[in-house]
Design a protein around this nucleic acid. Structure first.
Lengths: 216, 216
DNA sequence: GTCTATAGAATGATAGAC
DNA sequence: GTCTATCATTCTATAGAC
């Protein structure tokens, strides 16, 4: 499987009509919903078509194969997924930068839980598609930002913790609110008024991380 | 769906033979592997049978339906999943208890990543089966332990953080090493010699959590 | 571009020989 | 208890009418 974007039937298409663009968007929205819930194998084209309000053959006119829909959805959400860490600025203040990073990731979990679960599903199934992205672009990005954290530690501006695992901790704690949403709701019960519990989550994460890694 | 354990063809079975018990165990091992990778819908009976070294009809002699296998696997791993938190002792020292809790959860992720992913898959798919367990037994357990943390906070032995979200943080950071194993490996690259990176993870988690919530 | 109809493969589950 | 053979269903994907 390559990472190429799926395009509708090549040929005489010079430019997409407004209707085509709208239909593709509706398909990708529905596909995100289904793939993020059941994973690639558990998802069915019929389900996606139903969610997009069209018939299966009609959907397959836009994306010839199930695989193509999956690739398109992953591609559409990839940038959103990588952006928060990319914004971590070596020139900024460590505490402010890390706080902002946590906040961005948490907002993503609150506003796009399906995107978070899509990647979680893909990775838990062994990253069959995203594998190359993880060992390539993502690893490069993390190496770079881990070096930034390392520099802050060496300068005494951050407690001496492993920078890679610190990044993993931020990923884990923020994505948890998207990926395990049903468990959070079940446990919090009536306390889980959305988005109120996100504010409490934010405050808790900031408290623990900042006290944990910034010297008093 | 009820939570009853699946039993092989009722009838003349007085007690299971050694072979039956061994076959059931092999089936459940294979089922854990497959369900934890693909989720309920993505898993196929054929795949499980293959993993257990038997044919599909033979497997279905032991568990009549796919659902029954799933229920049996969930039941077999449920206790393991709940135990670490249950051991948190109100009478112990806060720092020692929380450290021990983190360690137990992390060991579970290291030694039983499939079990962790099984529950992650189930919850991400909306907890269709475990829903009642989450709102029942799990919620009760978390309420109880959150009260313990609250008492420690009120006694000034723990920084004033939300106890529920603190528990979520421990879940998230420890399970991350099981659920997102392929991502961890991809990012760490050659640094990810197992179980060496688990030791670094353990040290990092303990550092951040203890500095974060225990007053200096 | 969208539909009905359907081919062809895979899947859950069963029947019956041994 | 275990196998081969098979059924009914569901699924991906395609053909062809409109």
């Amino acid at each position: 499987m390559s990472m190429a974007t799926a395009t509708p039937r090549a040929g005489q298409t010079r430019k997409r009509t407004r209707i085509q663009a709208a239909n593709e968007a509706r398909i990708l929205d529905a596909a995100l919903e289904v793939f993020s819930t059941y994973g690639y194998r558990g998802a069915t084209v019929d389900q996606i078509a139903g969610g997009a309000g069209m018939t299966k053959p009609n959907l397959l006119y836009y994306f010839r194969r199930k695989q193509d829909i999956y690739l398109a959805v992953l591609n559409r959400t990839l940038e959103m997924w990588l952006q928060p860490l990319e914004h971590l600025d070596a020139e900024g203040d460590p505490a402010a930068e890390i706080t902002a990073y946590i906040d961005r990731k948490l907002e993503l979990s609150r506003d796009n839980p399906e995107a978070s679960r899509l990647f979680a599903m893909e990775i838990m199934q062994g990253s069959p598609i995203l594998g190359p992205v993880l060992t390539g672009r993502l690893k490069k990005l993390v190496d770079e930002k881990a070096a930034v954290l390392k520099a802050w530690i060496d300068a005494g501006r951050l407690a001496p913790v492993d920078p890679y695992h610190l990044i993993f901790m931020v990923w884990a704690t923020t994505q948890h609110y998207a990926d395990f949403e049903t468990q959070i709701r079940a446990v919090l019960g009536t306390k889980a008024t959305r988005p109120a519990h996100f504010d409490i989550a934010k405050r808790t994460l900031e408290q623990v991380f900042l006290r944990g890694i910034i010297g008093d």
